[in-house]
Design a protein around this nucleic acid. Sequence first.
DNA 1: CCGCCTTTGTCCTGGCTGTGGAGAAAGTTG
DNA 2: CAACTTTCTCCACAGCCAGGACAAAGGCGG
Lengths: 396, 396
Amino acid sequence: MRRMTARPANAHQARLLRLLRDGGPNSRAQLGDQVDLSRSKLAVEVDRLLETGLVVADGLAASRGGRRSHNIRLAPGLRFLGVDIGATSIDVAVTNAELEVLGHLNQPMDVREGPVAVFEQVLAMAAKLKASGLAEGFDGAGIGVPGPVRFPEGVPVAPPIMPGWDGFPVREALSQELGCPVMVDNDVNLMAMGEQHAGVARSARDYLCVKIGTGIGCGIVVGGEVYRGTTGSAGDIGHIQVVPEGRPCACGNRGCLEAHFSGAALARDAEDAARAGRSDELARRLEAAGRLTAVDVAAGAAAGDATSLSLIREGGNHVGQVIAGLVSFFNPGLVVIGGGVTGLGHNLLAAVRTQVYRTSLPLATGNLPIVLGELGAAAGVTGAARLISDHLFSPA
Amino acid sequence: MRRMTARPANAHQARLLRLLRDGGPNSRAQLGDQVDLSRSKLAVEVDRLLETGLVVADGLAASRGGRRSHNIRLAPGLRFLGVDIGATSIDVAVTNAELEVLGHLNQPMDVREGPVAVFEQVLAMAAKLKASGLAEGFDGAGIGVPGPVRFPEGVPVAPPIMPGWDGFPVREALSQELGCPVMVDNDVNLMAMGEQHAGVARSARDYLCVKIGTGIGCGIVVGGEVYRGTTGSAGDIGHIQVVPEGRPCACGNRGCLEAHFSGAALARDAEDAARAGRSDELARRLEAAGRLTAVDVAAGAAAGDATSLSLIREGGNHVGQVIAGLVSFFNPGLVVIGGGVTGLGHNLLAAVRTQVYRTSLPLATGNLPIVLGELGAAAGVTGAARLISDHLFSPA
DNA sequence: CCGCCTTTGTCCTGGCTGTGGAGAAAGTTG
DNA sequence: CAACTTTCTCCACAGCCAGGACAAAGGCGG
C-alpha cells in the first residue's frame, strides 16, 4: 500500500481531520454542525480531502429526519506507530488513524543499554507487528523517552537515567529507519496526551498527569496543549525536596521525592523490611522471587500486610505533599495518577487525596478530582500516536 | 473630549494597535515589515484606523534611504486608568495609550475596610488625577485586587485576606461609576504583565513573577499569556508548606510559606528580635517608630545589623525552597521577584539564588536568570493598563 | 401509495478581499 | 542633475466564500 503523503492544505482541513480522528466516522452534515463553515465551503474541503485519499466515503448515515447524509472517515489503511520507551521496558503499538490500538507488544529492556540497542529492539518489534498483518507500513511514529527532550529537534538532552542518549538524534535516525515522519517527546507528556485522548482526562483543559514508575514525572496540560517549559524539562518533579536532610539521591541532593518514593525506592524499602523481619508476607515473596517490586507491595497490601500498607501510605503522603504544592501553584481542573505503581491503586490514591485536600486551599481543591489513569500501558503508546497525528494533521 | 468608542474591526487592526502600543509611534513602512500584509492591505487597514480616530498621523519618519514614510501613532488623548489595590495601600495611575505612566498616586488603606470604602477612595484618586489635567476621561480601566478573581466576570472569589469582597461585582460596579470598560485581575498577575510590558521580562515567553508583600503570590506566564488556572487561583503559593509542623498560619495549617516569610511575618520577627534584645539596631528603630516593617529590616541590613541579615537570609531560603520546586516543575525562562520586600534587595536575591541553584536540576537552572523586578510600584498599575488595553485592542 | 414536510447536497451568482504590478511621488547619493 | 531607492497610490485580476435557489432523498401522516 502506498503510504500517506498528503497533508492538510489549510486549517479547515486540519480541523476536519482532527474531528474525524477524535470522533470517528462522521456524516458530512454532523461535521458541518461542528465547524462553522458554509455548506459550500465544507463540501469543497471534504472533496479535496477525499481526493488526497486521507479520507474515504463510508456509506450512509442514519437519517436525522430527512435525506440521509453520506458518512466519511479517515482512510482505514492509515497506521501510526506508538513507541513508549520506559526505564526498564519498551512498549510498541500500532494504531489506526482514530488512534485505536490494533496491536501492542511489551518487552523488558534496560534503557541504559543505549539508543542503538534499544532502537534495534524497537524496529524488531515494529517488524513483528507488521508481519502479523496489522500494518503494511507506517504513516508516522511517535516516540516517548524517559527524560527531557529538546522537542523541536526530537533530541534527548542531559537525561539523568539514560546516559549515552544525550544528543542522540532520535527523530532523525528513526525517521530514516522507518521511512515516515517521527516526533519525539518525554514519556510523561505522552501519557498525559494519551489520557486526554482516550482516558479520564477527555474533557480537561488544564490538568496534571503524575507518572510514578521507576522515577516520577508530571505531564502539564495548559489549555488542552502539553506545556514543555523553556528547555523541555517542565514536569521534572522527581527531585523536589520532600524531606529536609532526607535520604541521599542519585542527583547529589538529599530528600528528593524520588529518593523517598518511586518504583525503585519502594522496591528497596520492601526488601529492607523483609530482611529486617518486619513483614512475613514480603519475606515470603522475597524468598520466592529473589527480589521485590512494586507489584509485590501491592499484593502484600491486598493480602492485608500492615508493612506493605504503611509503605504505600507513607509514599502517598510524600507524593501528596508535592502534589499539594503543585495544585496550589497550578490550580488544575484534574489530577491523574498513573505509571507502574498504579497497581498500588486505591490505597495510594487515598493517601494522596488526604494529603492534598488537607494541605491545599479550598478554592483550588473544591472541585478537584484526583483519579487513577484508566489506560495503563496503553496511555503512553496512544499518546505517542496522538503526538504524530497532531503533527501530520496540521497545515503543511 | 469624546472618549474612545471604536474597537478594532479585525485581527489585523488589533495587531497594528498592539504594535503601536508596544513600540510607540511608528512609520507605515516599519509596520509593514512586522505584519506580513501586502502594502495595499496595510494601507486600507491603517486608513480605517485613522478614520475611527484610534490612530492619528504624526509627521514624517526619518528616511531609510528613499522617500520618507509617514508616521502614525495611537491617539494621544487616549487615557487608561490603572488601579492596584494592595492589602494595605492603593495605587492609582493614568497612562496614555502606550502605557506610559503620566501620573501616579499612592494612598495607605486597609483592604479590609471593604469594597465600598475602597472604591470611594479609588474614585477620589481618579478624580484628583483628572483634576490635575492629566486626563479628561478614561477609555478603560484595569483593576488589581489582592486575591483570586473569577476572571471573565471580574468578581473576587473567596479572598482570604479581603473578607467582604467575596462576590462583589467589581467589574460591573466600576464600569458603571467610571463610564468605561473595566477588567479585573489578581494583583500578582498584573505585576507579571507590567514587568513583561515595560520591565525586566520584556522578552520572556514562559516565566514566573513572585510577589512578596503582605502575602506571597506568583504570576505565571505561559507563552506570553497570563495563566490563571481552572478557578482563577493559580499562583497562590503562600500556603505551600515549607516547614513540617512549622508555625501556625491564618489558613489553619502549619508551616505555610507565608507564615515563615512575608512582609507581615518579617515585621513580627523583627519586633520579636528587637524586644528580645538580639538587635540594638532594630530595637532603636522600634523605639522610634513604635512598630517595625520590612523597610526597617532592610535598613538594618544595610547598616550591617547581623540579625536583620540573618532574618533576610532565612526568609530567602524559605522562598528559595519553594521557588526551586516551582522551577523544577515549570521550567521557566526567567524568575522575577518583586513586591513590597524588593527593598531587601540583593541580600534576599542572593539567598534565593543559592537555594534554587543548589536544589534544582542543572537543565532547569542552567540559563535561568533570577532577578528583581525593575518597575516597583509602577508594575501593578502598568499591568492594569496593559490588561484593559489588551481587552480593548482585540477584535470586537 | 401519495402529498407534504425536513434534511442534505450541488450549483451558481454576487460581493468582498487581497495580491501584485505599474507608476507617480519624494528623497538620497555621487 | 542623473540615477537609484524607498514609499505610497491606484487598479485590474483572481480567489474565496456566503447564501440563495433548486434538486435529491428520505420520513410521516393520511
